[in-house]
């Protein structure tokens, strides 16, 4: 299609409301997390529905690849509503009439209008980072770099808090694969605790994953475009001893 997917920023969350967009994103390798209540089963949160919630790293990758655009939620919604809200209509009811059928006056937003709205409501990735984290810190840059590094190698990445890491990387669609990598991103010269290594190693073995340390390589820092170049070590329990 070639059109940019609008990534709606509401407060601190980046949301995608259209199902077609969610499908496109999945094909592109962005999984996200469904975060809305399912109308058919509202009193549980094991199964959730639209909107899809993206992390800042996924959104940043999409913007850099010219696949999506961050739009300010308020302005975006206002303008979409201007076009596609139900029009008021007065209908006179005659006696004995039980129901009235009216024309569908809800008009879809077409692609051109959407593109115009998106350009109008656009916000930049850096501005959003400042809003979320206070300032653009090196750690966020590093996490973005790590995300891009693995995404460009066709890994699907999801949040890694459940496994004690920064991301979890799958070699393909998460639903198809069960063994993957837990990524922990370290800044240059940042140290990690060896006891943590024991815990993470044990956890990784128990859930059939490998632990990967991702860090900047001190020798090859590309000063020109400030992009850190990355180096990885994978750690797993040796199985003996």
């Amino acid at each position: 299609m070639g059109d940019l997917i609008p990534l709606v920023v509401n407060g601190g969350s980046i949301l995608v409301f259209e199902l077609s967009h969610v499908k496109r994103l999945r094909d592109l390798g962005i999984v996200g997390i469904l975060s809305g209540t399912l109308p058919k089963a509202p009193q549980q949160n094991v199964f959730l529905g639209l909107p899809l919630r993206l992390s800042i790293y996924e959104a940043a990758w999409l913007v850099n690849q010219s696949l999506g655009v961050l739009v300010d939620g308020l302005r975006y919604n206002e303008q979409v509503l201007n076009i596609s809200s139900l029009k008021e209509e007065t209908v006179e009811l005659q006696g004995g009439v039980e129901y009235v059928v009216t024309e569908d006056t809800y008009s879809q937003v077409d692609d051109e209008q959407l593109a115009k709205i998106c350009r109008d409501a656009e916000i930049s990735v850096d501005a959003l980072m400042v809003r979320l984290f206070g300032s653009v810190k090196t750690r966020q840059h590093l996490l973005s770099a790590a995300f891009n590094y693995f995404r460009d190698r066709d890994y699907y990445l999801m949040p890694g808090l459940r496994f004690g890491g920064d991301f979890v990387a799958y070699p393909g669609d998460p639903l198809k694969f069960h063994s993957h990598l837990i990524l922990k991103v370290l800044e240059q010269k940042e140290s990690f605790d060896l006891l943590q290594l024991v815990t993470s190693g044990r956890l990784a073995t128990a859930v059939k994953k490998a632990w990967v340390l991702v860090g900047e390589s001190s020798t090859q820092r590309n000063k020109q475009n400030q992009k850190p170049s990355l180096h990885c070590f994978s750690i797993e329990w040796a199985g003996f001893g």
Partner: peptide, 26 residues
């Protein structure tokens, strides 16, 4: 192979691979 020596004489061993390994079955 990284050997971590504990003060109670336990030694646990971990593999440190150069690069990101292809995940394998456990």
């Amino acid at each position: 192979t990284l050997a971590l020596v504990n003060d109670d004489a336990t030694v646990t061993y971990y593999f440190v691979h150069d690069g990101a390994i292809k995940p394998r079955q456990n």
